[in-house]
């Protein structure tokens, strides 16, 4: 298998809301198993780009091609409040699954996933009783349960304290090790440089910078220059 096979190809994507252009001819290729950080100030179009990739929004122009299943992690998690943690993980997977043995193995898999994330004790709890970091884990687990080839994460650290942010870095890193391609949108450059091998900077719906994190001496400061003016 070619490691640098493009998993996702975006060509001249554009999108406007009420006449205001939010994405302006964005072109981007993401290689398989890449972890791409999507940086940019608030309002630069990061969420919109992710939502277009997931087809929650329809592009006005340009094209997108994805070579696999997409998983999505919402900024505000969007866990199902009336289902327990375990049910949140299993519901979509077990839909239409009549084979009892496979349902059982799905449940085993979900429990292992919760255990790896350190929240196996919460399996039968409802989302309202979880902390922000715990909800984050459940959201990650839920999006990984359907076995995506590409995982899109929108601001996975927003609203989390420093220690929990570190946990999320480790979590996402361990998810990368499974070979899943990731695109992580965040305004937090420190966080992004810790986790991604490539960072793309969006400003006013345009890609203004594309850096290879390992090739760069001081990626945070390098990127910061483009943030200001």
């Amino acid at each position: 298998m070619n490691e640098k096979w493009p998993m996702l190809k975006i060509h001249n994507a554009s999108k406007s809301f009420n006449g205001v252009e939010v994405l302006n001819n964005v072109s981007l290729e993401v290689a398989k198993s890449d972890v791409l950080g999507l940086a940019g100030p608030s309002g630069s179009g990061k969420s919109t780009l992710l939502r277009c990739i997931q087809q929650l929004e329809i592009l006005d122009g340009g094209s997108m091609e994805c070579d696999g299943k997409i998983g999505f992690m919402f900024q505000d998690f969007q866990l199902f409040p009336h289902l327990t943690v375990l049910q949140n993980l299993l519901y979509a997977l077990n839909l239409g699954e009549k084979n009892a043995r496979r349902r059982q193995s799905n449940e085993m898999q979900a429990k292992i996933m919760l255990k790896n994330l350190g929240i196996e004790a919460k399996a039968s709890m409802y989302p309202y009783s979880l902390s922000g970091g715990q909800k984050q884990r459940v959201a990650l687990a839920r999006s990984l349960m359907v076995d995506p080839d590409v995982l899109l994460c929108d601001e996975p650290t927003s609203g989390l304290d420093v220690a929990t942010t570190m946990d999320v870095v480790l979590l996402l890193k361990s998810a990368c090790e499974t070979g899943v391609t990731m695109i992580i949108a965040s305004h937090d450059l420190d966080f992004l440089t810790k986790i991604s091998n490539r960072i793309v900077l969006l400003r006013d719906g345009k890609i203004v910078l594309d850096v290879d994190v390992k090739q760069c001496q001081d990626p945070v400061n390098h990127l910061k220059k483009y943030y200001a003016d």
Partner: peptide, 23 residues
């Protein structure tokens, strides 16, 4: 209801009927 609940159901590939009935 938050629009995200519909979207979460969609991103998980839950068919429309089940989305309404169960989510």
């Amino acid at each position: 209801l938050p629009k995200g609940q519909f979207e979460a159901a969609r991103t998980l590939g839950i068919p429309t009927f089940y989305m309404w009935r169960d989510i």
